[in-house]
């Protein structure tokens, strides 16, 4: 494997980490105003991700930084091309991050209720927009021979990307509800379980519609062949199994399965992209690839050394922090947020 391919894989790994981890905390944020009836309940829900959400978000920042370092042209074309969508997402993320910290710092129901809806919107918007963005990358957007995006905001809104957005939104929300089934207790636990069961079918249906649309809208399947291989199939089987696992109250396994669905769907999309990183709908020859968008071999080498040393360390201490705070959260305990 050459360094360009290694970095393509690494960025895929960072996105998997990001979607897996922040996927559930987006889901938790979306469910917050609906699952939590009174203040202590809402606080318990926020506290279930209180320790983790900031660390989870760094996966996105690292993915962005890694794109910049390893594939500057990808970073430049994508971020300037999807400008308005990203502005909206940044506004959502700005408000969301502050909301977690500020919400419970005033003993005022109006104040708290407002922040709860900020958390909702701040989670809803990125959960939707990431699906839209990824779908457009694989479907292709107008890119000229100088790697410049030549479309506009409305280019990004098409049936395929919107279905992709709704699918990611539902999948993350489902993932979040199952996470809450593992983290909450008492009434809240019952609520989370109910929501998870309700969400499973629409999420699964949307995901399959998205896959079917993918046959017509992208070249992913002509690339992967009629038999797409074991990874996409496992992604499909995993989401199917979630319904059953929820029924028999095996939430731990259900969480693993939504995790696999997220991870393997992301891998499928990256496999469909490879060796491209952004598809040009104007002319296939103008697509950005891991070669024409990449940094110099020297930079890739330096960054590989850094990644090999530090990614395992980060994984180790993040996993450890999840282990320390593995206990269920209850409305009866002391709540920090």
């Amino acid at each position: 494997m050459d360094l360009n391919t290694i970095w393509f894989v690494l960025i895929a790994v960072l996105f998997i980490g990001f979607f897996f981890l922040e996927g559930f905390d987006y889901g938790v944020g979306i469910l917050l105003p609906f699952l939590g009836k009174e203040d202590r309940e809402r606080r318990a829900i926020i506290n279930s991700i209180g320790t983790f959400w900031d660390g989870n978000e760094v996966w996105m920042l690292t993915a962005g930084g890694a794109m910049f370092a390893a594939f500057p042209n990808w970073y430049a074309t994508l971020f300037s091309g999807f400008y308005l969508a990203l502005v909206v997402m940044l506004l959502a993320l700005i408000a969301r991050g502050v909301a977690f910290e500020y919400r419970s710092k005033k003993d005022d129901p109006v104040w708290r209720n407002r922040w709860d809806w900020v958390i909702f919107a701040g989670s809803f918007i990125p959960a939707l927009l990431w699906g839209v963005a990824i779908s457009n990358i694989i479907r292709g957007v107008p890119i000229d021979d100088k790697m410049n995006f030549t479309g506009n905001f409305f280019t990004l809104l098409n049936p395929y990307s919107l279905i992709g957005g709704i699918a990611s939104l539902l999948l993350f929300t489902l993932h979040g509800s199952i996470f809450l089934s593992l983290k909450l207790s008492d009434n809240l636990l019952d609520g989370a379980r109910k929501v998870a069961k309700k969400l499973w079918l629409p999420a699964t249906i949307l995901l399959f519609i998205y896959v079917i649309l993918g046959y017509f809208e992208t070249d992913m399947f002509s690339k992967l062949g009629v038999n797409p291989g074991v990874i996409p199939i496992l992604a499909g089987l995993a989401i199917l199994s979630v319904g059953y696992l929820l029924k028999i109250q095996k939430e731990g396994w259900a969480f693993v399965m939504t995790g696999i669905t997220i991870a393997f769907s992301t891998i499928t999309i990256f496999m469909g992209l490879f060796p491209r990183v952004m598809v040009s709908s104007t002319n296939p020859d103008w697509s950005l690839t891991i070669y024409n968008a990449s940094s110099s071999p020297y930079t890739l080498k330096v960054m590989t050394i850094v990644a090999v040393i530090f990614v395992p360390i980060v994984l180790a201490y993040q996993a450890w922090s999840y282990w320390i705070f593995r206990k269920r959260v209850s409305t009866k305990q002391k709540l920090e947020y």
């Binding site: 690292t62 930084g65 890694a66 910049f68 370092a69 970073y75 940094s295 930079t299 330096v302 960054m303």
Partner: peptide, 8 residues
């Protein structure tokens, strides 16, 4: 890009 990625 490199120092930014390392920073993260």
């Amino acid at each position: 890009g490199a120092p930014l990625a390392v920073e993260a």
